[in-house]
């Protein structure tokens, strides 16, 4: 379970205080206008921002003293998830060993992970030879190998078309279910949240304006949500 208890995040010129609980194995979507701080919450959970107060627990462990690499978290960004100068399999291999010193069995695992995301046989290619969707699949393959209980998605499918996006969401959900992962996803598309999320939160002006089970969330919109959805 992920628990943010009055987590205080200060950036250069603004700040936010967040409280949020996400049940283990569930899928939580963060929606809200751009600039509201959705991505900032993910960055704080992943450890890229210093904790300014409050608490962050994952499965009962305090995250504050842990460096990004030591947290039980994998994060997918909107872009630059892959190093363009490395092949796809090298990029995925980083999930096994960040210094890329892999033995035969490890490379086999890389191949398996690629197969799981539907990229079998593309390991030797450079990222630029893949489509946008394929690149994010490769990033997913890496996340699979990292085997972290929490997966944070910072709009990784925003640049894809509606059908492709749906497919990717489905894939993420299936993989997470297989591995028992908890997911928090930032999205611009309320439809994505309706489609994939168990829980939805509206982030606005540095706080969580409304949070609830997906169906209840959209069934009983607050004024803020009504304004946002228009």
């Amino acid at each position: 379970m992920i628990r943010l208890d009055h987590l205080f995040i200060a950036l250069d010129d603004w700040q936010m205080t967040i409280s949020l609980e996400v049940a283990a194995g569930s899928f939580c979507a963060l929606i809200g206008p751009s600039g509201a701080g959705k991505s900032t919450i993910l960055n704080a959970i992943a450890g890229f921002l210093p904790h300014g107060g409050g608490q962050l627990f994952i499965d009962g462990r305090d995250m504050a003293p842990l460096a990004p690499a030591d947290r039980p978290v994998s994060m997918l960004f909107q872009e630059h998830n892959l190093f363009n100068h490395m092949t796809v399999e090298q990029n995925v291999g980083l999930g096994v060993d960040p210094s890329l010193k892999l033995g035969k069995t490890e490379w086999l695992r890389v191949e398996e992970a690629l197969a799981q995301v539907g990229l079998d046989g593309m390991g030797k290619r450079l990222p630029r030879a893949l489509s946008g969707g394929q690149r994010q699949r490769a990033s997913l393959a890496r996340a699979i190998l990292r085997k972290r209980p929490v997966l944070l998605l910072d709009e990784p499918f925003a640049a894809l078309g509606p059908a492709l996006r749906k497919g990717m969401l489905q894939l993420v959900r299936d993989l997470a279910a297989q591995n028992g992962q908890t997911i928090i996803m930032v999205t611009h598309h309320p439809d994505d949240a309706r489609l994939a999320a168990d829980q939805v939160a509206l982030v606005q002006d540095g706080t969580i304006a409304q949070v609830g089970k997906a169906d209840a969330f959209f069934a009983n919109p607050s004024d803020a949500l009504k304004a946002y959805l228009g």
Binding site: A46, A67, P68, A69, F77, E79, H80, L94, P98, S99
Partner: peptide
């Protein structure tokens, strides 16, 4: 582009 990735992977 890659700063967070490097941190997260623990390179």
């Amino acid at each position: 582009d890659h700063g967070r990735q490097i941190q997260q992977l623990g390179m």
